[in-house]
Design a protein around this nucleic acid. Sequence first.
DNA 1: TTATCTTATGAACACTTGTTCAGATATTAA
DNA 2: TTAATATCTGAACAAGTGTTCATAAGATAA
Lengths: 115, 115
Amino acid sequence: MNELNLHSIEPGTFEDIQDHVSDDEVISALSNLFKALCDPTRLRIVLALQHSELCVHDLANLIRSSESNTSHQLRILRAEKIVKYRKEGKQVFYSIADHHITHVITDIQEHLRES
Amino acid sequence: MNELNLHSIEPGTFEDIQDHVSDDEVISALSNLFKALCDPTRLRIVLALQHSELCVHDLANLIRSSESNTSHQLRILRAEKIVKYRKEGKQVFYSIADHHITHVITDIQEHLRES
DNA sequence: TTATCTTATGAACACTTGTTCAGATATTAA
DNA sequence: TTAATATCTGAACAAGTGTTCATAAGATAA
């Protein structure tokens, strides 16, 4: 008796897949990362930082947003360790935290080209 | 005279980066893709489909959500061409649309391991 | 035809989120 | 100290989003 009434897979396969999609911590971590990357303003920040390390003021001008909003969005990118920063006097310089982030953007752009 | 009052980069560099972050179509397309991937329910769907082609009923049971909600979320994934589908009688079988999507997930997971 | 099964859809609601504004913090210079 | 500069933060509000419920649509079988 199969109370789930599976239509297209075997119970064993079902359990294998379920193990993989039931890891709430992993799902939540992935979700938070994609959430951080899904906002146009934050995407502009990430794309800008792929070219050069930048301070908040220049970053704000580049993406045509206020310094306040830029700072708010950088906070979210920092929380997900998508960007890192270093202080130099009054200024704070931001840059991309690791190369996997750049790869993600590249992969997504390739998907766009093919779809 | 520099009305932008740049702090950390040259005007030429500024314009180069600005060209890259000002392509609204690309930014919007990237944003929509990440938006589609940032919801936990949709992430579960994508992770499940990485193992096997699945019909809506089995997919709903796997991710522990209603069939209605699963269908709603599949619609969004379809719109971004993250998943594709084929009909077979009453059933609709979904699968991952292309390998770049799988790579994106892999890259993000590697980022997670290192951060 | 009618009945059943599978999937899709529209409306409604609660919840989340990006931006703005005002103000705070921190660093440097005078 | 005060003033100026650079960045950050909290509150508030509009706009967007995920889920549920009810129902529709499409396919098959009787």
